[in-house]
């Protein structure tokens, strides 16, 4: 049994393939999450300021994406973009490189679109939870609006948002597994290929599960210590 495992993992180098898949998973998760967060921040601020039309549109987007399964969003982006991506790349003569990079780009975009919708709600909630007295204090000091926002509101909101960001990140890293159904070579896809070739799905999917578990456990610990660090000076109130 152990000998078989050794042959499978080391001599046929499936362990390396699975580790590579994990790196791709983490990369897609991180880039997608960062992209989603970058887009979500201005959208959430506009939603918080109740900018007309924009905030309704943001609300619509957020409700739509949070209301449908991630798999459906991924199908929309993949099937919906194949045609024009092919057309554009063919026009510029980058057909081959586009064929290779295409799943990664759309995968990252899909993850970003999903995580952005959840991030908007988290950031908006955090902005609304900043105590009004602090904003009034800043106003009474005659701080300009921009300074108030950058120095008072946003840092405080970021601290309040950390718990929510943790949830969104945990969800995002798990959602990356969905991108595998459209052929992106990340951890889940590598496990599926391994399961198919070696005919031992139980082993490969359990290893994939264990690797995902390690990722979520490590990031949970990191977020917990970040939360503790940001809670300095707030404890006991």
């Amino acid at each position: 049994m152990l000998g078989d495992l050794w042959v499978l993992m080391v001599e046929q180098s499936w362990a390396l393939a699975l580790l590579k898949g994990s790196v791709v998973t983490i990369a897609i998760g991180l880039i997608g999450m960062a992209l989603g967060f970058l887009v979500a921040t201005p959208l959430a601020i506009m939603r918080w300021r109740k900018v007309v039309v924009v905030s309704q549109l943001v609300d619509g987007y957020s409700i739509l994406v949070r209301g449908v399964p991630g798999l459906l969003v991924i199908y929309l982006l993949f099937f919906g973009s194949i045609e024009w991506v092919k057309a554009i790349t063919a026009a510029f003569g980058y057909q081959d490189s586009a064929d290779n990079a295409y799943p990664y780009i759309v995968g990252v975009v899909a993850i970003a679109v999903i995580s952005c919708a959840y991030s908007i709600e988290v950031i908006r909630g955090a902005l609304q939870a900043v105590p009004y007295g602090l904003l009034e204090a800043a106003q009474s000091l005659a701080l300009p609006k921009g300074v108030t926002f950058m120095r008072v509101t946003f840092p405080l909101a970021l601290r309040l948002a950390l718990g929510g960001i943790n949830n969104v990140w945990q969800m995002t890293i798990k959602d990356t597994s969905l991108v595998s159904v459209v052929g992106l070579q990340e951890l889940m896809r590598t496990a599926a290929i391994g399961a198919g070739i070696t005919r031992s799905p139980l082993l490969f999917y359990c290893i994939a599960a264990a690797l995902f578990f390690c990722m979520t456990a490590v990031s949970q610990t990191a977020f917990s210590s970040a939360e503790r660090a940001l809670d300095r000076g707030f404890r006991g109130r």
Partner: peptide, 14 residues
């Protein structure tokens, strides 16, 4: 701590 897709695959294929 694990994605549901992995759970589905472990149960159905594994």
């Amino acid at each position: 701590g694990t994605p549901m897709l992995v759970q589905v695959f472990v149960i159905y294929y594994g």
